[in-house]
Nucleic acid binder design. Structure first.
Length: 354
DNA sequence: AATTCGTGGAA
DNA sequence: TTTCCAAGAAT
């Protein structure tokens, strides 16, 4: 019994065989992917690497992920290697990729795999779903890609493909479980290739701002292509992005080292490194310096988060001696690459020429 | 169930 | 310049 009355979707079946044929000829070459020809020879991908790539790819472009994926797999070739690393080391490597809860969950998941599964990464969706940072999509993707579990893999790409194919008249959020149930009925053998095919299709043919329907293997049965496929998926109104203001402080000592500290364990940029800032407020307030010094104004910076935009004035000064800034540490300019600094604070430091 | 989580590149 | 948005999860 489904917990919510998922609206039933009655529609013509989807030509999964045509999708697989298209994939055999057009599969994208990706660092974590086993090409369909190799997959047919029985070569299966490493679940650890598929998991790592899937977590990195959550709400993140392939272009942004590439270098991070290469670095992580070089540093930590197995899940046991990753589990053995300190969390703060993982955060340093994740810095700049965003959505830092992913890195904390990644590390927790690696340790759970070592503890609960003896270091053998699970490949069944039900077990995967119980691990930190693995939700419905990621569990299904790993299970399908590594073990050909015949499970619906529904990501943003596939949602768009299906919304157009079915000419879905409501926002995807309102029909998600119905879409999942419909897709589940369409999953063929070679479930892993089918999942990757549907995602490639959404990324290259049935893209957000362009639909190359003449090249699409699903064009014959597609309801969206009969008028304007680009009107789907129907989306809800976007709330506008508020602005917040604050002041950031680049504090140097006599050697030129920079004062950094760790952000709180919860909330935005949790546990990452930062330069001190004032609280961020919805109105621009006069600056309150952390100590009396010869403060100089630097170029202010703007940083855009998902749900607000931040305008930071940037100030710099030499710390008083002896410096009583207890909870943080001093970092040499050459050592900043080894700090878990989010892009926001890279911008702040760049404003000081660092 | 609606919000809260980053970032950078493309249109 | 502004807008959109990318292989979502946790709460």
């Amino acid at each position: 019994m489904p917990k919510s009355p998922a609206r039933q979707i009655d529609a013509a079946p989807l030509d999964a065989a045509a999708v697989l044929q298209w994939y055999d000829r057009n599969a994208r070459d990706l660092p974590w992917r086993v090409p369909p020809a190799d997959r047919a020879r029985g070569i299966a991908p490493d679940p650890y690497r598929i998991w790592l790539s899937e977590v990195m790819l959550q709400q993140t472009t392939i272009a942004a992920v590439r270098s991070y994926y290469a670095r992580f797999t070089a540093l930590w070739p197995s899940v046991a290697d990753l589990a053995a690393a300190p969390l703060d080391r993982v955060l340093v490597e994740w810095a700049g990729l965003g959505y830092y809860a992913r890195a904390r969950n990644l590390h927790a998941c690696a340790r759970a795999v070592v503890e609960r599964h003896g270091g053998v990464f699970p490949t069944r969706s039900a077990e995967l779903l119980a691990l930190p940072g693995i939700g419905a999509y990621t569990a299904a993707a790993i299970a399908a890609i590594t073990g050909d579990e015949e499970v619906a893999v529904l990501d943003g790409n596939v949602e768009r493909v299906l919304a157009r194919y079915l000419a879905l008249p409501v926002p995807v959020r309102e029909a998600k479980e119905g879409l999942r149930a419909y897709l589940q009925e369409q999953v063929p053998q070679r479930a892993g290739d089918f999942a990757q095919a549907m995602m490639d299709l959404g990324a290259t043919i049935c893209a957000p701002r362009s639909a190359l329907c003449m090249l699409c293997p699903l064009q014959p049965g597609c309801l969206g292509t009969r008028a304007d496929p680009l009107v789907y998926p129907v989306k809800a109104a976007k709330p506008e992005r508020p602005v917040r203001f604050g002041h950031a402080f680049v504090i140097r000592d006599r050697d030129g080292d920079i004062y950094l500290r760790r952000r709180p364990e919860k909330g935005l940029l949790a546990r990452m490194a930062e330069t001190p800032t004032t609280p961020w407020t919805d109105e621009a307030l006069p600056v309150v310096f952390p100590f009396a010094a010869d403060w100089r104004a630097l170029m202010p910076i703007t940083h855009v988060f998902t749900h607000f935009r931040l305008e930071l004035s940037v100030w710099t000064a030499e710390a008083p001696v002896p410096a009583d800034l207890a909870e943080g540490w001093w970092a040499a300019p050459e050592g900043l690459d080894d700090e878990a600094l989010p892009s926001l604070f890279r911008k702040v430091l760049a404003s000081a020429g660092l």
